[in-house]
Design a protein around this nucleic acid. Structure first.
Lengths: 152, 152
DNA sequence: ACAATTCCGAGTGAAGTGATCGGAAATTCC
DNA sequence: GGAATTTCCGATCACTTCACTCGGAATTGT
């Protein structure tokens, strides 16, 4: 092999916990700051680990933190203006499977075989994932959570 | 945390290499067995590593191996009857993000919060990924590979 | 002053990734 | 029958990532 294909696409607990966190914040939108302690209790997640995740969300400009007693976090934008895609991207890195497909240098990656047929797979997959995640807003998810029982 | 959310969804080099392998086999469909040595050379992939991957594909019933000189691998079914989803599933595990969503015991997973709003995200994502991958056959991919220059 | 809370960086055990290696078993060719 | 080929099988290994924990600083409200 020549180049390495660094971690294609993946969703781990980072994405899961982070999504829970963000939906929780969305549910309390307009009610001031929410402390990680409260989120950790409600969602039954390790608080110290959430700290790490929320740091990524803050750096991505999705939440604002306020220190001190009575402090906490607030969504940086309205829930309807934050998508699941924003959250996943902030926590797991770019959605695009970087297999022959890295953004910005799409063609350069596939040096050996420019017609590489498998590329079609990852391109379609990438598109599919992005469309699914970018099509869901926190506002919708927060609504679904409180009501509506889902039957599988 | 109580339960573990074991590895949600991910595509790594296993999926990438495996797909290249399978497309290569599809291209040589009807021409007898293809040795890993040949594939490794054509696709510029580590042969010893391919061995490991092809074992998973064989166990999944996607390829048949034939030992001995002149031996190699053949697709177990027609290229048009094997999807990209089959390949990815065989190599990376079930596509379904096992976040509140494991197949067969969908509801049991989300013990604490049956209305867990974030579940909608993973359900939709799962559906989206599965539809995209299951909608592509090796026959199509093999065709794309030989001709058709893709301009991104 | 004091408690709450965000911020920050470092560390850690377990698992997964991406291989490599040695060798056994089967099959074909000579 | 023997040698080459090739699939099979299991072990090992360096490296990275995952999922967390910990200690401590900085900031703010009471």
């Amino acid at each position: 092999m020549i180049g390495n294909s660094p971690a294609a696409f993946h969703v781990s607990t980072r994405g899961e916990y982070g999504m829970r966190l963000m939906v929780d914040l969305a549910k309390h939108w307009g009610q001031g700051t929410v402390s990680l302690h409260a989120v950790a209790e409600r969602e039954d997640l390790p608080e110290a680990y959430l700290e790490q995740l929320v740091a990524a969300l803050r750096k991505a400009g999705l939440v604002n933190g306020k220190r001190g007693a009575g402090g906490g976090y607030v969504l940086a934008r309205e829930p309807r203006e934050i998508t699941a895609g924003d959250v996943v991207r902030a926590l797991e890195g770019p959605i695009e499977p970087q297999i022959c497909t890295a953004e910005g240098e799409a063609i350069l990656n596939c040096v050996r075989e420019p017609d590489c047929g498998t590329r079609a797979v990852w391109l379609k997959l990438q598109d599919s994932i992005a469309k699914a995640l970018d099509g869901m807003t926190l506002a919708e998810l927060a609504k679904t959570t409180t009501r509506e029982r889902v039957n599988v």
